[in-house]
């Protein structure tokens, strides 16, 4: 399991990264933490001729409170996502997702930008970002784009990034006081990819849910927004009745893969169980 040969170049600026990428005629991959790229190359699932190390580009670093959003640099390591107080305060679904992402040593090195750009459908952060209605800051030779999370995750390992573009940061809208959050997953072992996972947030006004946002992961080719389940919650108190309606609505929202080892029906069943548990335990940031 040794990597095939490639050329390694370190970019000191985004402009340099784009140039190195275009220079390779597209046969290049950006390297941030490397915790997806390196094992997939060791497995010889990909063999780009060039790896461009973008880990030292200043724009990709830092967690910063801005006007309306929390800006989380793409190079923010999972361990920092887990520990950062600004993230805990303003992007709590990421803090709650982080302990489920692999294991401590992986979290020391893996980056949130790398994780989102990979768009693994079984991964936690994409669903959390989707649930928080975050925007992804993307920079390319043509300039900066802000892409809503809902428009970013397209298909299996496929995102809205066009070749050469770099995901530079995640912008999480600052939540209002009292917003409820919930995150959980069902996994065989601690740190394993989830059999199914749920991220959810909702605001309460006058005792009823407004702006419910419910996403699931490990239920299809990409993290999935459960719009019918959201609708079931909207405008009603968060009660066993509304939760049951949301659970039932998942049949409309999800079209899980049907694998002989893991039938679609079973995955839907687990998704319902988990959604019920997550919605029941929703809580605001303390």
């Amino acid at each position: 399991m040794k990597l095939p040969s490639f050329e390694y170049l370190r970019a000191r600026s985004l402009a340099e990264a784009w140039a190195l990428h275009s220079d390779a005629g597209g046969d290049a991959v950006y390297l941030s933490g490397g915790h997806s790229v390196v094992p997939s190359m060791a497995l010889r699932l990909q063999a780009p001729s060039r790896l461009i190390d973008i880990s030292q580009i200043a724009e990709l670093h830092g967690v910063e409170l801005q006007d309306q959003t929390l800006r989380i640099g793409a190079m923010t390591r999972h361990a920092e996502v887990l520990a950062n107080p600004l993230i805990a305060r303003h992007a709590p679904l990421l803090s709650r997702a982080a302990p489920h992402v692999a294991h401590p040593a992986i979290r020391n090195r893996g980056t949130i930008g790398g994780n989102l750009a990979l768009a693994d459908p079984a991964s936690e952060f994409p669903a959390a970002v989707l649930a928080m209605r975050a925007e992804l800051e993307v920079m390319g030779p043509e300039g900066q784009r802000m892409i809503a999370a809902d428009d970013f995750f397209l298909d299996l390992y496929e995102t809205a990034l066009i070749p050469g573009e770099v995901l530079t940061a995640i912008h999480v809208p600052l939540p209002p006081e009292g917003r409820l959050f919930g995150f959980d997953e069902i996994a065989r072992r601690r740190g394993d990819y989830a059999m199914v996972g749920v991220a959810a947030q909702a605001d309460m006004s006058d005792g009823v849910v407004s702006d419910a946002s419910v996403t699931l992961f490990s239920v299809g080719v990409a993290p999935t927004r459960a719009t019918a389940a959201q609708d079931a919650l909207e405008g009603a108190p968060l009660s066993s009745d509304s939760i049951a309606r949301a659970q039932a609505a998942l049949a409309t929202d999800l079209d899980p893969p049907d694998d002989p080892g893991f039938p679609a029906e079973r995955r839907l069943q687990l998704a319902r169980v988990l959604l019920g548990r997550v919605l029941t335990r929703m809580e605001a940031v303390q």
Binding site: M1, Y8, H35, P39, D53, A79, A105, I106, N108, R109
Partner: peptide, 28 residues
């Protein structure tokens, strides 16, 4: 050699990382 077993952990800048998932050149 894929970050699953933990036998290769080293401390990199003070924290454990998988030496099998880090390229030597990334340790610059």
């Amino acid at each position: 050699e894929m970050g699953a077993c933990g036998a290769c952990l080293v401390l990199m800048d003070g924290v454990p990382v998988h030496a099998c998932l880090v390229l030597a050149v990334q340790a610059e």
